[in-house]
Design a protein around this nucleic acid. Sequence first.
DNA 1: ACGCTCTCTGAGAACGCTCTCAGACGGTAT
DNA 2: ATACCGTCTGAGAGCGTTCTCAGAGAGCGT
Lengths: 353, 353
Amino acid sequence: MSKLKPNANHKAKDLNLEDIAKEAGVSRATVSRVINNEAYVSEKTRQHVQDVIEKMGYTPNLRGRILATGRTNIIGVVIPQSLATVFDDQFYFPTLLNGVAQAANQRNYAMLLWIQESSTDEERFYERILKNHLMDGVLLASTQQDNPFIPRLLDMDIPLAMVENPNQWASYINYVDVDNHGAAMVAIKHLYKQGRRRIGHITGALNNIDGIRRLEGYKQALKELGIPYHSEFVIEGNFESKSGYMGMQTLLKAHVDAVFCANDQMALGALKALDELGVRVPGDIAIVGFDDLPTSERNKLTTIHQPIHTKGAQVTHLLLDQIEGISDGARHVLLPTHLVIRETCGASITQRF
Amino acid sequence: MSKLKPNANHKAKDLNLEDIAKEAGVSRATVSRVINNEAYVSEKTRQHVQDVIEKMGYTPNLRGRILATGRTNIIGVVIPQSLATVFDDQFYFPTLLNGVAQAANQRNYAMLLWIQESSTDEERFYERILKNHLMDGVLLASTQQDNPFIPRLLDMDIPLAMVENPNQWASYINYVDVDNHGAAMVAIKHLYKQGRRRIGHITGALNNIDGIRRLEGYKQALKELGIPYHSEFVIEGNFESKSGYMGMQTLLKAHVDAVFCANDQMALGALKALDELGVRVPGDIAIVGFDDLPTSERNKLTTIHQPIHTKGAQVTHLLLDQIEGISDGARHVLLPTHLVIRETCGASITQRF
DNA sequence: ACGCTCTCTGAGAACGCTCTCAGACGGTAT
DNA sequence: ATACCGTCTGAGAGCGTTCTCAGAGAGCGT
């Protein structure tokens, strides 16, 4: 049985290409060819080498391969400080990561998670990991609009992909996005159809592109519906439930009859505020959120569903395609959203379609 | 401005030790010594070399170093399939990861996340990542008691640490744990002190050591309190809120006046069931959970708080100590928990201390 | 028999670092 | 002067792969 010990004693016992080559009576190069499934190896030798490999229980050492090929088959996933420290939304990011993991596993890549708990972590990431070519590419998620990393990464020519629209850098970067603008419009128009006319909005963080786009969608929908825009109907939130809770209290004074919240967390906060104050939902005020968290179903929240897992998987494929030279231009993917009608919007369920 | 392109063109322009050595008029070895802050370099050369490095903007290439040293400064964090596919608890794991990240960053390690979405992923992990020595050590979290990985990992002599008590392997493995058994007893005795005598328990998954220990604590507390054990007071759950919801409905038939849930998720499910049935909390039934999720505060849930972030950080330090040969035996850390009294247990807040 | 192509194989360089070893040098004790 | 020791430095091997290149052999048409 094993005991604990520092791993100094590992090197000795491991097999390498040479060992296999010797045992099989061929050269290192041939063994390498067999392992990598290259052409120009006779079926006979291939089989023989494979048997020897099997027999001796050999697996190629990635470290050697990494040095030789310059590729690590590792992608980096950067979680910005804001997300790492705010524990409010515990659904979005893990789900996204699962999507990334699925795609990465499938294509034989591993995922290096870089959680930035402090700003020194950010610098360290840049210095230690990126410049040293430990990763074949980088995935950026939920970053702020003016993230100073973006130009630096672009400058290093390291493959890069994002899960939001990178805005000014859009033409240089692969990204996956959902139509935040259109989805917000769908939400507003749905509320309008339920007879609501005094529709408020609690925005997301407005240094985040998603938050901005959803606000724009809100405004655009009002315009198309011929409803004048009232600034007192719009409260700036930050995606955290507390800001929904506070925002709702303020909006009540403006006598809104419906509120579109830029995400479900805030919508849940708003619902809590209304509940505490005895305001009926959807009787007095209708609520629509964005994200479709699992909790939202339990809370009967009408919301915009977005395919988070798919987002993670897709963006990973974009990145890997670039790393492997399959794609050469910046590619953009727009994923669909749809309105999930539950009870908080005042529409009966049968109205769904 | 950068354009997208496959990263074939990287190799050419990168500096290496040789370049610096040539420029500084010294040997590769000396530059290496300077970089690694080794002794036996004159202050004059050290400064000069450092200047050249600075001037040319050189950073050592990790790939070469990895091959030479056999160490990657990467630790693997394995997320078992059960956790990856169940999205119910979205707090525990991200928080744990943050703790791991903090400790790892601090000690200059990176974190390779291996999310197992399918059982082929598990095998792939073993074959591709572990046997190939891509990681200096492995962190196992929330694994089932009979995880077949454990003996395999032990057999490979790869440094290993766990965030639960590994039970039969305990004497071979570093781990961090909380006193689940004692904490459960605290919960039960607290309910007893509030006058409850018909105390039920919704267990966690019973293939998980935490779930088992909490059940044992429940039984032990009853015994010490002289309360006979009724099997109809115990419902087997699986840590998911739905099982708390269902379990509560069953327990109602047994006319319990209090329920200890093995985690907060299930406690929240139970609360929901009670709410729907019009049962008053804590009037008719008192509830105590385990974990102290952020949501629990909002729901006034009395619960056992455990230091999840610290757990992650501590277990990482244990692992890194072993990797670096600082520790040589299996070390165990037991972290404290405490009861957080809110409203669902029926105790007034002022009773807290 | 000759040249040609195509398949197969091995030798050896390359990747970029660390680490061991030997030797140079200066200072001190004998 | 000699021996010795501690400090500093460089040459070169080694880590385990991949990849290029050259060459051997087989098959085929002329």
